[in-house]
Design a protein around this nucleic acid. Structure first.
Lengths: 234, 234
DNA sequence: CGCGGCCTTGATCGCACTCAATTCTAGTGG
DNA sequence: CCACTAGAATTGAGTGCGATCAAGGCCGCG
């Protein structure tokens, strides 16, 4: 079930120039006159938790900037088991591949209620003509995505279950308060690290018993990190 | 031990315009006058089997186009075990990440004696100013690299050892003659699929016993595919 | 011939998967 | 407020697959 609610903007100019995360996003380098030239609207899109922004193979005419929430990119394997390719956080770009292929290359599912800016490909093309710096920004986004993919292969998908879970926990640490961490469902964590959810659960609780983690809620999602060194050394 | 032998060109113009794989590479869209403007030479580089083109973290002032041979990108893990991130074949670009970070993001090692064209970043920048189409080509290269990384995570690094080896064999098939395949060392195959070399060896020979493969040499590298369906269905 | 590198094969062990039962929580409705 | 439910997390018991350790074979090469 897809439920997207586009909100038409009064005007791109005011909207984008006052964007709270503009320094993070594609338009960081652009100036006022660049925005004035736009002919196509940039809409805001809301996606509820668990809902899909797009699916693998969908025709794609836009890329998205994540303003609020968290998105997972998922590939469904022939045997039915899912594989999470990447997690996207605030400021990340979703659907870059549509710029090359006109199609999205994986499912995009909201892990939290999420807000995104929908940027039509025609807008990208318009802006790129007038401001070549956009190419630099775009390339940085491609690099980020590729580096993230490589890191997952080399770090998260390697070694014992204990090591994989430890490294995943460290990756999920809160960016503002590094002593706290918000985990995902055990099943999602397993789809990232190629482990069963039971194994993930066992390893997480082993860290709790060993004093590396202390649960902050009763749902197994929020923890505080008590012994970062233990997690690091593994 | 790094051994690179740069060969200075008489002139970029004649050299690049007559390149046998030009349709595959970055300059497919460029015309004569674009080349005439170049101030920096494009050199040819030879890398012997097992030798490194660059290492993880090296300062990088150029990207490379692979004209002959095969290159592996390798990340060395803290515990000493290597992880192969990607295989690059004729026409692929090596070292794209240096365009963004000025550094290479992994080791690049020749699996076969290889020939590459070394393209300084300054040349890319010059050409991009005069011919905006280069941006499109570059973006296609980023996409290819990212897709390859995602595929490895979702396909090669998933499921039983038997499935992983079957899918890897199918990926390594000869492009000209799909009934033949050239494997890598069992250790390299293990570093791709996250298996030990003993397990890879067992699975390969199991396919031979089952009649899916027939060895064409005595070193365990060249095989002919006798029952593709068996490999596919797994 | 001897040597070194790589591949193959065998035997054993342990980790993570599987199957299964239980607990816990949030949400719902009487 | 409590009963009930669905979904998620936890925990246990048993098994099997792939890792590990070890030995031997094959090939190219000096």
């Amino acid at each position: 079930m897809i439920q997207i609610q586009p909100l038409t903007n009064a005007g791109n100019l005011a909207h984008c120039q006052s964007c709270g995360i503009r320094h993070l996003v594609l338009f960081a380098n652009l100036v006022e006159k660049d925005f004035q030239a736009l002919h196509t609207p940039i809409d805001e899109v809301q996606v509820g938790q668990g809902e899909q922004l797009f699916r693998d193979g969908d025709n794609g005419q836009a890329i998205y900037t994540l303003r609020q929430g968290m998105i997972k990119l998922v590939k469904r394997n022939p045997d039915g088991r899912d594989r999470i390719l990447r997690l996207l956080r605030i400021g990340d770009v979703v659907g870059l591949e549509s710029m090359v292929t006109q199609h999205y290359g994986s499912d995009a599912v909201a892990l939290q209620p999420s807000t995104l800016c929908r940027i039509p490909l025609s807008v990208i093309q318009e802006l790129a003509l007038q401001n070549p710096k956009l190419h630099v920004t775009l390339m940085e986004r491609w690099y980020q995505a590729l580096k993230e993919a490589d890191d997952w292969l080399a770090e998260l998908n390697f070694g014992s279950a204990r090591k994989r879970v430890a490294r995943l926990i460290l990756r999920l640490r809160d960016r503002l308060d590094p002593t706290r961490v918000t985990l995902l469902s055990r099943e999602d964590m397993g789809s990232i690290s190629d482990l069963t959810f039971e194994t993930v659960s066992r390893e997480v609780n082993r860290f709790v018993r060993e004093g590396a983690l202390a649960p902050s809620d009763k749902m197994g999602r929020h923890y505080s990190i008590k012994n970062e060194a233990l997690l690091q050394e593994i």
